[in-house]
């Protein structure tokens, strides 16, 4: 591995993040606060506790996942799409680095940004509701794995996209619905019969369930299954990236 090159890409990407630190910081804080105002105070007061946890606290893991997944995808996809769009990709292609190093630099930076935002949201949430984290290491592990795997997915989307519309397409039409329907704001057990089974087809259910377990010990699916699910998802993303690397698909003619 050419770590100097990985570091150069990572620092370059992080510099972009720090340049816009205020936006990066403020927007998740505001949107999280809005969710708490609406779901926590306005609606939450009318909703009974979910399995012993107040509704405001119950939605925290889902809210964190929602932002982390969205941010990981958009940062990574934009990070690699932008050089393609403005043409600076020539530099990466002519540099003595392999695709794995390019991925490590971009995905590493995107995952770091997403992680940072996840922590900011957790801190903001702590101002509104009493947070309890029963399994802090598992919580961190789920958070890091989610950041990484969705940054990988974002990277793939960024390579795939031929224009800015396509860059928004998958997050908007696929990822966001999956997160909303994946139990961010409710427990799968609240769904009527058949929908509980259908919901299990949604991969995000496993992530949110595992993540919520690390907070409150509550899970829709066993935590082991959650871990396997996220590992499998990361594996699939890595396999796709390996294939892109082998074939030069959409990057090297």
């Amino acid at each position: 591995m050419n770590w100097t090159a990985v570091g150069a890409i990572y620092r370059f990407e992080m510099a972009r993040f720090f340049r816009t630190l205020l936006q990066s910081f403020i927007s998740p804080v505001i949107s999280t606060s809005l969710y708490f105002v609406v779901f926590g105070a306005a609606i939450g007061s009318r909703i009974q506790e979910v399995e012993g946890v107040s509704y405001g606290a119950f939605i925290v893991p889902g809210l964190v996942m929602l932002s982390v997944i969205t941010q990981a995808i958009s940062n990574a996809s934009f990070g690699i799409y932008f050089p393609k769009f403005i043409g600076t990709i020539y530099e990466l292609l002519s540099a003595p680095i392999n695709f794995l190093e390019i991925v490590a630099g971009y995905v590493g930076a995107a995952a770091t940004k997403a992680l940072f935002i996840g922590i900011v949201i957790l801190a903001t949430a702590a101002l509104f509701v009493p947070l309890r984290i029963e399994h802090p290491f598992a919580m961190l592990a789920f958070l890091v794995l989610t950041c990484l795997s969705f940054a990988l997915l974002g990277f793939i989307l960024g390579i795939w996209a031929k224009n800015f519309e396509q860059l928004q397409l998958v997050p908007l039409l696929v990822v966001t619905p999956l997160i909303f329907l994946g139990g961010s704001f409710y427990s799968i057990s609240m769904l009527p019969g058949i929908w509980q089974k259908i919901a299990l087809l949604n991969p995000v259910v496993y992530l949110i369930s595992g993540f919520r377990w690390s907070f409150y010990g509550l899970a829709d699916v066993p935590v082991g299954v959650s871990l396997i699910a996220i590992a499998a998802f990361t594996g699939i993303c890595l396999a796709v990236i390996w294939w892109i690397f082998r074939t030069g698909w959409r990057i090297r003619s």
Binding site: T4, G7, A8, R11, F12, A15, Y90, E91, A95
Partner: peptide, 23 residues
């Protein structure tokens, strides 16, 4: 083509290239 990151500083973009080439 003049392919450059429009919002980067000259110094940073030159340093980036050196890094990407592993130096």
């Amino acid at each position: 083509e003049v392919n450059l990151e429009p919002f980067e500083k000259v110094w940073n973009t030159v340093r980036f290239t050196r890094g990407v080439f592993g130096r």
